[in-house]
Write a protein that binds this DNA or RNA. Structure first.
Lengths: 133, 133
DNA sequence: ATATCTGCAAAATCTTTGCATTTAA
DNA sequence: TTAAATGCAAAGATTTTGCAGATAT
């Protein structure tokens, strides 16, 4: 199972790299379709899974029942807006030490954690402030 | 929309309270079915959603694509075994202050976070140790 | 009496997969 | 040439929903 080049796969990854908003498979599909009108949703899913397995992209599960994808595989945290659902990168210090906190009274082995924050994104917060004034 | 008593709903909640392993809707269904052989999966889902909305149970999303449910609504963290998939309660100090860490360079409003830890549960860790010795 | 709840089945949503064909190497 | 990738459509898995009948208040 050697990897073989595919223009579709490259287009999928290229598209993801242009976006900072962590699109879903469906969004990837409709966008890549402007370049490859015949691409199928199955191909999009297959390639997203493949790229994620290769570690070239990250699969994000933020609890909305849909997978999001991120071309930025560097360790960072995400924020999910409770109002609009947007997923935003957070520029914050590492909190990896919470693994130690969790390990204190635990007999298993903790190798990592998944964390995302929620609340109001800057845009929705502004909107709410205006509505109240 | 006043709440009306239902034996099915009570059985669902009672079952959840007997379990510490955060069952899925399907597991709830097959267990409650021993008491109510005619209960439908739809009723189970409807009541789990209702109970979660009422805050009487918690809905857990740990990234495996299936919702888990927990009768323990007190704030606590969960561990998901990467090998067996089991979801275990962690007895650990609060890490709520990570909200402040996240808020530092963020213009929106952070109201909370979702965190779960992963690695090897005590049982799978033991098994792996034995296999290597 | 009547609003809520149920069982059933159908549908909705998201994702995976089988297969014949195309394509990269 | 041939293993991998694609498009298409069908199937899987999980969850939601419409509706007619049952049930709690």
């Amino acid at each position: 199972m050697t990897l073989k080049y595919s223009r579709q796969r490259e287009a999928i990854k290229d598209f993801l790299m242009t976006r900072k908003d962590h699109p879903t498979a469906d969004v990837v599909y409709s966008n890549v379709r402007t370049e490859f009108p015949n691409i199928s949703l199955g191909t999009v899913y297959r390639n997203l899974t493949l790229l994620a397995d290769l570690g070239e992209i990250a699969r994000l599960r933020v609890g909305d029942g849909v997978d999001h994808f991120d071309a930025d595989t560097s360790p960072h945290y995400h924020f999910v807006c409770s109002d609009c659902g947007n997923v935003i990168d957070l520029d914050m210090d590492s909190i990896d030490y919470i693994n130690q906190t969790a390990a204190k009274n635990f007999n298993g082995q903790i190798t990592g954690h998944i964390t995302y924050f929620y609340g109001l994104c800057p845009h929705c917060k502004e909107k709410k402030l205006k509505a109240l004034s």
